[in-house]
């Protein structure tokens, strides 16, 4: 996302006082509107935070107030009883392993596919890109059977490999155009200096696509962390469940323990939200890059 300079030349029509007053009213109205919309976005999130500290009684007594007592034990109990200790660890392992694997595979492939004059690149690019359209409901059971045949079911690899593979289409859609804009003279110069193909890629080209790699990591990281449907079917053992599925299966058993459910939901959202607060710009740019390039 490019930043436009803040000091745009003011159009001349605004010079007289009446216009200036109209303009100020405009600005106040704009801030008012944006504040209201931001509140509409924030209220449910704040409500979630408060709910995670409420006792069951508070849900009935103080539906939209603060908790009467801050029930930190919701988190302690979520950690132990709602299996969050296991599912959080699984989510962290699966997401980081799949993000790393997917990003590297996509970077290699995109470098190869960006050489448009070479054989098969156009066809392979379309093959990868068409993965965006495949409804996961269609492939998940054949996938389940495949994972069992490979002896991977019941392990975290049964999520890591499918996530990595499903992360490739979008990653390649983002990375190939980025590689294609790099001047081919760079690679040629490195080859003359005696670099082999691998060194050209690893030392020269890959460092230059770092911003696009950041987009890929964020985009794939967020969906893998949040993915629900695939682990719902594939991770049938509680020991391999990730957070979203863990919460859902907990709800099935303790349907009235709202405080625990919402403590788990907060734990599941927290890592992404913290990363987002620290790296807002990269997140916004990364996720919209996926849309604009696609």
């Amino acid at each position: 996302m490019t930043d436009v300079t803040l000091s745009r030349p003011a159009p001349k029509v605004q010079s007289n006082a009446r216009h200036r007053r109209a303009l100020r009213f405009d600005q106040i109205g704009r801030h008012l509107l944006l504040t209201i919309v931001c509140l509409l976005v924030l209220v449910p999130i704040i409500y979630l935070l408060l709910a995670s500290f409420k006792s069951v009684q508070d849900f009935f007594d103080r539906p939209y107030g603060l908790p009467s007592q801050w029930a930190w034990q919701n988190y302690v109990r979520a950690w132990n009883e709602a299996n969050v200790a296991v599912t959080l660890t699984n989510s962290i392992i699966v997401t980081s392993a799949a993000v790393v694997l997917s990003t590297f595979l996509a970077a290699f492939a995109s470098y190869g596919l960006s050489q448009r004059d070479k054989r098969l690149t156009a066809a392979l690019y379309v093959l990868f890109a068409s993965g965006m359209l495949i409804p996961v409901q269609m492939t998940v059971l054949p996938l389940f059977i495949l994972l069992r045949q490979l002896g991977l079911s019941g392990t975290l690899f049964s999520l890591i490999f499918p996530y990595s593979a499903l992360g490739l289409p979008l990653a390649i859609l983002i990375l190939v155009p980025f590689f294609a804009t790099l001047p081919s003279d760079l690679a040629a110069a490195a080859r003359i200096d005696g670099a082999n193909e691998w060194q050209v890629f690893w030392r020269v080209m890959l460092p230059l696509v770092r911003p696009a790699l950041a987009s890929v990591v964020i985009l794939n990281g967020v969906w893998m962390w949040n993915e629900f449907f695939i682990p719902l079917i594939i991770a049938i053992k509680p020991s391999t469940q990730t957070l979203p599925v863990g919460i859902m299966s907990f709800v099935g058993v303790y349907s009235t323990e709202w405080g625990l459910v919402f403590a788990s939901v907060v734990v599941s959202a927290l890592p992404v939200v913290v990363a987002y607060v620290l790296l807002t710009r990269q997140f916004v740019a990364g996720i919209s890059a996926g849309a604009i390039k696609g």
Binding site: L105, T121, P142, F161, L166
Partner: peptide
Amino acid sequence: HLWFVLPALLVYGLFVLYPT
């Protein structure tokens, strides 16, 4: 250049194209 595509193609072929 196809050597670079091969690892991704194997993973994609096994876990996406084959189930499809």
